[in-house]
C-alpha cells in the first residue's frame, strides 16, 4: 500500500502552487482558479485520510467543501462581472480606488 505521506506531499505541492498563483498573477480569474486549486489540495488530503483511517467523515467533509466551492465560484464570478462593469479590467492592480 502507498504510504499516506505521499498523498500529503502531493497535497502540499498542489496547495503551494495554488498559493503562489493567488499571490503572483494579476488576472482575477486566474486568482479564483488558484483558490479552487487550494480547495482541491485540501480535498486530496481529506480523502486520503478517510482511506487510511477507515473513516467516512473525511469524504463527508469533501462533499461539503465541493458544495461551498460551487457557491464561492458563483459569488466570485459575480464580483468579477461587477468589477469589469465598473472598471473595464480584470487585473487586480488596476482596481485601486481604496488605496489611501
Amino acid at each position: 500500500m502507498i504510504p499516506l505521506h505521499w498523498y500529503l506531499w502531493l497535497s502540499a505541492v498542489v496547495f503551494m502552487v495554488g498559493v503562489a498563483g493567488f499571490l503572483m498573477r494579476r488576472n482575477i480569474i486566474i486568482m479564483f482558479m488558484s483558490i479552487e486549486l487550494m480547495l482541491n489540495a485540501v480535498n486530496i488530503s481529506l480523502v486520503s485520510f478517510s482511506r487510511y483511517l477507515d473513516d467516512m467523515r473525511g469524504q463527508i467533509l469533501v462533499f461539503f467543501i465541493i458544495a461551498v466551492a460551487a457557491a464561492e465560484a458563483a459569488i466570485g464570478l459575480g464580483i468579477i462581472i461587477a468589477l469589469f462593469r465598473n472598471k473595464v479590467t480584470a487585473h487586480v492592480d488596476e482596481a485601486n480606488e481604496m488605496k489611501g
Binding site: 498559493v19 503562489a20 493567488f22 503572483m24 492592480d93
Partner: peptide, 11 residues
C-alpha cells in the same frame, strides 16, 4: 503583464 510587480515575494 502576467504577474504582479512584487511576484518573487509571493513565490
Amino acid at each position: 503583464r502576467r504577474y504582479v510587480g512584487p511576484w518573487p515575494l509571493g513565490l
